[in-house]
Amino acid sequence: MSETRQECRFCAGGCGEQAKYAELDTVIESYKDREGCLIMVLHAAQEIFGYLPIELQTYIADKLMIPLSEVYGVVSFYSFFSMKECGKHTLRVCLGTACYVRGGMRLIEHIKEKLNVEVGGTTADKTFTFEVARCIGACGLAPAIMIDDEVYKHVTPKYLDEILAGY
C-alpha cells in the first residue's frame, strides 16, 4: 500500500484532513514498537478526528498491519468508540407518551426541517447530534427536550428556535 494511494482515498476533494492524518501518524509511530497498542491508537484517533469512521479504521488497520475486521471488532466492542460523527451538543426530543401526545412529533419534524438533519444524524455544522429519547421523566413538562444535560420544558416550535439560537 503506497502512501500516496492512502492520501488520495481519504483526502479526495482536497479536504483539510491531511494535518489530522499527520498527527495520527505521529501517534502510531510512537506506539509502533509497543505490544498491543491498537486501543491506545484508536483513542488517539478518536481524539483527533472526533469519531472513527470505517475509512479511518482502514487506515489504522493498514498502518498497524492488523486485519480490518479485527480493528472493527475492537471498535464495535467498546462503547467508548463511536463510528458516527457526533455534534458538539446532543439534542434529544423526548417521545415518552406524555411528550408524544403533547406534540413531541411536531418538534421532531420541526428540527428535521430547520436543521436539515435526520434522527441519529449530525448537523452539517456539527453543532448538534439529533436523537430521540424514551421518557426522560419530565412528563409534567411535556413536551420536553434535552440538550446535553439541560432539560427544556413546554417546548413549542417557536420556543425551540429560541433555544437553538442559544447554541
Binding site: I54, Q57, P67, S69, E70, V71, Y72, G73, S76, F77
Partner: peptide
Amino acid sequence: CGNIQEVGILSASNRGFTTEISPAA
C-alpha cells in the same frame, strides 16, 4: 479464517447479545 488461513475476514463484532460474526463493518 483468522488463525489457520491468517486472512482474517471474519471476526466477531459488537458485543453481548448483539455480537455477530461478519466482515468488517
